[in-house]
Structure formats: structure tokens, C-alpha cells
């Protein structure tokens, strides 16, 4: 979905706010630049790498599930100043879907900025009430017998889904697996699938 260009009055207001904060010594230009740089670096590839490693390394998987923040730090991602990261393990019985009904809480340090739809009133109200209809609109049909667990990100943690490793990926390298995982899989609105890639590779 195309995003609107920022309004001139919003930019002017932002400029005044930043000027006031700098004048009072609350933020410096350097801090703003640092924050911008870390925000620019954050993208779903980081989360995808974490998932791929969990699929190939049981010990690391255990760390990821026990303490997502420590696991991210172990991969060289600075989590300083970020809320703790929790990781939700999909199984043959439960699929997780993450939403923030109150605002737009999202594990930005490891996935980057949330997509427009994640912040929409429609997603926030419907994901928690009719998750299966929302999943269907993303083209996601869960195998029979899988329960949906909607995770409402209401407070201090940020949540990422660890999907199940798709069938047909036996023997794949960590890089190949990383390339399979998208932002949508980490939020839980869709499931990774080796189908397309496997047939293309064949």
C-alpha cells in the first residue's frame, strides 16, 4: 500500500520539537543519528536468520526460546534500549499469530518497522477476534488439528513467531533456510513453504 507523503505542518512541528529537545539537552544530534542508523539496519532478515539457525541448531533454538534477547545479542544484534524479545514456538498442535490490539508493539530491533496493515484498526481488532478469517485473507490455511493462539502484545515484551521448519528442506544450508523466511512468517500471518523454491531448484 502506498504511503502518503508527510504533511508540511507535521514536518514543521517535528522540527520545532527536535529543536526544543536539543536546546534543553534532552537529545543530541548524535543520538538521533545513532537511533536512525540502528532503525535503518533493523529488517526482517535478522529475524529470518534467527529462525533458520533455530531450525539447524538445537542448542541455539533452546536459547532462543528461553531468552530471545540473549539469543539476539549472541548473534551480534545490539538489544540495548529495546524491550525484551520473546519467541513463540509453533508446533504440530499450535500456531501463533501476533497482534498489538492497543497500539503497534512490534519487535523492531529484529524485524524492522511494522507494515502498514499491522498498525491498522482492521488488523488489530480482527486478528484477536476472528484470527482464522484474517489468516485466510493472507492465504494461510492451517492443517487440520492446529489450534490458533493469538498473542496480544499488550505490555513490555516484543514477540516473534518461530515457525515450524517446512517439509522438503532437509539438508538445506542456513543461508537457504534464511531466504525462505519473511516478515509475515515472523508475525504469524503466513507460513514458510519450501514448495516454490524446491520446485524451482529441481
Amino acid at each position: 500500500m502506498a504511503t502518503q507523503p508527510p504533511r508540511a505542518e507535521s514536518l514543521a512541528l517535528l522540527d520545532k520539537l527536535v529543536t526544543a529537545l536539543k536546546r534543553r539537552g534532552i537529545v543530541s544530534e548524535e543520538e538521533i543519528a545513532q537511533k536512525q542508523a540502528s532503525a535503518d539496519r533493523a529488517n526482517p532478515m535478522t529475524g529470518a536468520r534467527m529462525v533458520a539457525r533455530a531450525w539447524t541448531d538445537p542448542e541455539w533454538r533452546a536459547l532462543l526460546l528461553r531468552d530471545g534477547t540473549a539469543a539476539a545479542e549472541a548473534m551480534g544484534i545490539s538489544m540495548r534500549g529495546n524491550p525484551p524479545l520473546g519467541v513463540l514456538e509453533d508446533t504440530a498442535k499450535v500456531h501463533h499469530l501476533v497482534v498489538c490490539t492497543l497500539c503497534s508493539c512490534y519487535p523492531r530491533a529484529i524485524i524492522g518497522y511494522p507494515p502498514h496493515w499491522y498498525k491498522s484498526a482492521a488488523y488489530r481488532s480482527r486478528a484477536v477476534r476472528e484470527p482464522r478469517a484474517v489468516l485466510a485473507e493472507f492465504g494461510t490455511v492451517l492443517p487440520a488439528g492446529i489450534q490458533v493462539r493469538v498473542v496480544d502484545s499488550t505490555a513490555d515484551f516484543r514477540w516473534m513467531v518461530l515457525p515450524m521448519r517446512p517439509e522438503g528442506t532437509e539438508g538445506w544450508t542456513e543461508d537457504q533456510l534464511t531466504a525462505l523466511v519473511t516478515r509475515d512468517h515472523l508475525v504469524g500471518v503466513s507460513l514458510p513453504d519450501a514448495g516454490g523454491k524446491a520446485s524451482r531448484a529441481a
Partner: peptide
């Protein structure tokens, strides 16, 4: 409404 077995996991103080 909804499907039996589906759940909600919420952070609460």
C-alpha cells in the same frame, strides 16, 4: 464465537 481449542495469550500486570 470462534473455534474450540483456539486461545488468546495476553501480557497482564
Amino acid at each position: 464465537e470462534g473455534q474450540q481449542g483456539d486461545t488468546l495469550l495476553i501480557e497482564l500486570f
